[in-house]
Amino acid sequence: MRFPLAFWDLSLWLAVISIILLATAELLSPYYGRTGIVLNKRVLRSVSLAMGILFLFTVAVRVVGIIMGS
């Protein structure tokens, strides 16, 4: 029994999620969109930015790993 996802799987997941959320947060509009679901746009944007930063952190870990390894 072990968690099946590796660090890089999570990194990829974070990248995809942050792109989706950033696009959603920018496209959501209370006036021009027909969203059908009400979310706090500001919170959504901050979450998407947080996910993006987490992804960049995983990239930084990778870069540090490459530098230390060489």
Binding site: M1, R2, P4, L5, D9, W13
Partner: peptide, 19 residues
């Protein structure tokens, strides 16, 4: 379940739903 069955797909589904 993903931990129990060591399934990548279940893990991604679980992450997405939880998120």
């Amino acid at each position: 379940s993903s931990i129990l069955y060591e399934s990548n797909i279940l893990a991604f589904i679980g992450l997405g739903l939880t998120f």
